[in-house]
Design a protein around this nucleic acid. Structure first.
Lengths: 211, 211
DNA sequence: CCTACCGATCGGTAGG
DNA sequence: CCTACCGATCGGTAGG
């Protein structure tokens, strides 16, 4: 790992733990065994570091969504989008936290650049949900509100999900996707088995669980 | 409105717009037509202001949840909790934003005090969901994860909901509650009408909507 | 990559 | 409630 990458990695951790404004350049320098001023041999400004972290996270989210085949049936597509989203958070919780929590401190130009990518990301969900509403597999009153609901449920996870905790990322994503589909009024489990059985209502597989 | 309240109101707006650390005491003083040092005739420290805002918001959320009758059926109770939560956000979006976004900058003692109230608030949801799982009206795999899902969907709303926007708070809350119940695997519309019809699956009332 | 420094700004206080 | 000030710290730079 070269010095610049080392700085970015440390910054992602510090910014996520203490916040962008609370972390001083001296704090960051100490974390990579440099003197304060020496950082500027590798980076132009504090805000450049923030942008690189946020931009990197945005790319990860976009790449994850772009990898979901757009011709999948809507329910499966939404499930895959949910899983991709949570995979990014599980893998890069620090950078994801900075992405969600500190991006507003970017300069107007850079903020606008990130906003574009956020819009593009959101569009993947908007499309999948609209498709599902059109074909009748989703039953929601307002697709726009439903999209915001789904993104809200996803975006907050960085606040509490611990990839090293008791529930492994895969299991976490699977259950989360099931609840998202429930919120969208989808009929039942989608991945294995035939098309949903009529007259039986929805059922989350292994319903019950703890209690 | 006395001076102290005036300061708190202005601080709620400024902290929510620019962030706690970006807002200086001089910014705040200017907003209430005072000189910087004069603020300290009314408050002890910047952090005291932050605490008062966050504490006030916590009280509002707790009071809203406490007002939901605990003997209601679980589905209706969850719906009422969702509506209460969103009502607070619709009424005090600024303070709610500070509550969610800046509370971590409190001193350890004050942070712990708020954490207690957050836990108590979360417990209302945990109980309602556990009750619903027990009685079989909710079908989720892991009640703990389901609770976190619901709170995530709610907690993020301060980021995008505009009470003055196109969708009025009541309508917003009603649709949001329907999606939450869907995520919990509840069977259908709950408020009006008889118990859910068997053999018809779930349906959000007026399913379809825009598209 | 370090040393030494810059001007600016911070939260908070004394004294009236 | 104002004026004037405090020490501390900030991001960033020059010169080597």
């Amino acid at each position: 790992m070269d010095r610049r990458t080392e700085i970015m990695t440390a910054a992602g951790r510090l910014f996520s733990e203490a916040g962008y404004h609370v972390t001083s350049m001296r704090d960051l320098a100490r974390a990579v065994n440099l003197q304060g001023g020496s950082l500027y041999a590798h980076i132009a400004s504090k805000e450049e570091i923030l942008f690189e972290i946020v931009s990197h996270a945005a790319d990860l989210f976009l790449a994850g969504a772009a990898a979901v085949p757009p011709d999948l049936p809507p329910a499966e597509r939404v499930a895959r989008l949910v899983e991709a989203h949570l995979a990014v958070i599980a893998r890069e919780i620090g950078n994801a936290t900075v992405f969600f929590h500190e991006w507003r401190f970017l300069s107007p130009e850079r903020k606008a650049q990130i906003q574009e990518r956020r819009d593009a990301y959101e569009a993947y969900f908007t499309r999948a949900i609209a498709d599902g509403v059109e074909t009748g597999v989703f039953r929601v009153e307002d697709p726009r509100l439903a999209t915001l609901f789904v993104l809200s449920a996803l975006n907050w996870t960085y606040q509490w999900y611990d990839p090293a905790g008791p529930i492994p990322p895969d299991e976490f994503a699977r259950q989360y996707a099931a609840m998202v589909l429930g919120a969208l009024g989808a009929d039942g489990p989608l991945t294995p088995g035939p098309s949903p059985r009529v007259g039986e209502g929805r059922s989350t597989e292994h319903a019950g669980g703890a209690a």
